[in-house]
Design a protein around this nucleic acid. Structure first.
Length: 464
RNA sequence: GCGCUCAUCGUCUAGCCUGGUCCAGGACACCGCCCUUUCACGGCGGCGACAGGGGUUCGAAUCCCCUUGGGCGUACCA
């Protein structure tokens, strides 16, 4: 156990997306590598937009990716008393103040400042006001430093400094009494003993404000590390426009979690020329030192290639179990005598996703074979009839195993004088319904004697 | 606009800190050839980048400056 404590803190306003997943992954890897502690915290202070469905979706996605946490999930809505207490503390110490400006007034001021070419900052009108006695609605603002510089040493980006003049007095408690993000994040990160805050690049600008709050509250300031953003092909921040951004959508599309993890980690992190990393590899090799500083473009093609790789090299037994789910998704019930691990073996080199594998496996498990019209017309012709009959005869008189099936086939070739392709393709159509499928012998073995003969006879029947 | 930040093949990146071994390496995609019972897999090969301009230096992808371009932020969202 080391004293490293990190966290992933998503806000439950939607599913877990690609960017969040990578941040979670980086935190997870660091915690595992250093044998530290990985905490999950749900940032639901925006009561309006937070939903339980989102929380469930996020939890489910993390589970699917294999990102287990050691503490939590903690919910910020359950810690409002703590935040209130801290607000009071700041108020009492004169480090925060009540602001009576209305949202509308602020918007107007902001727009005016922008139009003037000034910074759209809060002008501090209520900063030195003596608190009113009436019950006029108010927010509470943090009194930030007016001069000087706030800087921190980012573990990924290096030293980053801000002039305190750039920082205005931000709201820490809304009119309705709920606390805001930049305030609670500090309290929680501090109270939960985080030693490193590893999060998205988009939080860099919040960091100096947060540091001032740490200091005002007397907390130790943790270390920070900001991971660059993930962009779409047009170099804009990744969004739905660029295709699926939900982690779970990838499961539905037939991706393996190993592939997504591998892809995500390589987007922004590298280890020499290596491309393939298992979770165990990563726990061993991951370091912040090898995380890049520039934003990266999400490349679906490479993810697909990795998925292909993990399907190709995956355990047939496990993939078989998975395949059944996708097959059921397509409406197929798998017959008891079909060995899905064997099915997988014939399809591993031919499928880039599990959905594709299921589609290609459909012919094995269906009751009524569907024939491709063109294939049927071209290969299920009258002249095939005697060939199929011969094949059936040979097949019936032998052991139905790799040697037997192949021998039967070769005998037919010999007796008819036909080339492999001349017999093979029609047979393929008879067995699979189409012209592209795994090797004929493999197909026959997976199908089994009974089903193979049945389909051959059905083909003869179709020829008429 | 202002602030922060980034900049090597179309994309992900190695190299940059500790200048020479880099006329820049790997991967995805793309193209070609080979293998082949269909479809794939696979093997081999090809295309393809140091954003631009100034410096420093015997020598710069590597160090410095400027320009340009990109990203993020600028909420009573997180």
């Amino acid at each position: 156990m080391s004293d490293l404590r990190v966290r992933f803190a998503p806000s439950p306003t939607g599913y877990l997306h690609i960017g969040g997943a990578r941040t979670a992954l980086f935190n997870y890897l660091l915690a595992r590598k250093e044998q530290g502690t990985f905490i999950l915290r749900i940032e639901d202070t925006d009561v309006e937009r937070s939903t339980q469905e989102s929380v469930d979706a996020i939890l489910q996605a993390m589970d699917w990716l294999g990102l287990s946490y050691d503490e939590g999930p903690f919910y910020q809505t359950e810690r409002f008393d703590l935040y209130k207490e801290k607000v009071q503390q700041l108020l009492a110490e004169g480090k925060a103040y009540k602001c009576y400006c209305t949202a509308d007034e602020l918007t107007t001021k902001r727009e005016a400042a922008m139009a003037n070419g000034d910074k759209p900052q809060y002008d501090g009108s209520c900063r030195e006001l003596t608190p009113r006695e009436d019950d006029a609605p108010y927010v509470i603002r943090f009194k930030s430093k007016r001069d000087g510089v706030t800087s921190f040493n980012d573990k990924i980006k290096g030293t980053i400094s801000f002039n305190n003049q750039e920082l205005d007095d931000m709201i820490i408690q809304r009119t309705d009494g709920t606390p805001t993000y930049n305030f609670v994040v500090v309290i929680d990160d501090a109270e939960m003993g985080l030693t490193l805050v590893l999060r998205g690049d988009d939080h860099v600008n919040n960091t100096p404000r947060q540091i001032q709050i740490y200091q005002a509250l007397g907390y130790a300031v943790p270390e920070f590390a900001h991971v660059p953003m993930i962009l779409g092909a047009d170099k804009k921040r990744l969004s739905k426009r660029h295709g699926a951004t939900s982690v779970m959508a990838y499961r539905e599309m037939g991706y393996l979690p190993e592939a997504l993890v591998n892809y995500l980690v390589r987007l922004g992190w590298s280890f020499g020329d290596e491309e393939i990393f298992s979770m165990d590899d990563l726990v061993e090799k991951f370091t912040l030192d090898n995380v890049g500083r520039s934003a990266g473009v999400f490349n679906p093609d490479k993810l697909l290639w990795l998925n292909e790789h993990y399907i190709k090299t995956g355990d047939p037994q496990q993939l078989g179990t998975l395949l059944e789910e996708y097959l059921q998704q397509l409406g197929f019930q798998v017959p008891a005598d079909i060995d899905l691990a064997e099915v997988v073996k014939t399809l591993q080199d031919r499928s880039k996703t599990m959905v594709e594998m299921a589609e290609k496996a459909a012919f094995y498990v269906c009751d009524e074979l569907e024939y491709d019209a063109k294939a049927q017309q071209k290969f299920l012709t009258a002249e095939q009839k005697p060939v199929f009959e011969a094949l059936i005869g040979k097949l019936e008189s032998r052991e139905f195993n790799a040697e037997g099936v192949e021998a039967a086939f070769k005998e037919v070739l010999k007796e008819t004088g036909l080339k492999f392709g001349k017999v093979g393709q029609p047979t393929r159509v008879a067995l699979s319904g189409g012209t592209s499928a795994p090797g004929i012998f493999e197909v026959m073995l997976v199908l089994g004697r009974e089903r193979t003969l049945k389909r051959l006879r059905a083909a003869i029947e179709r020829i008429g």
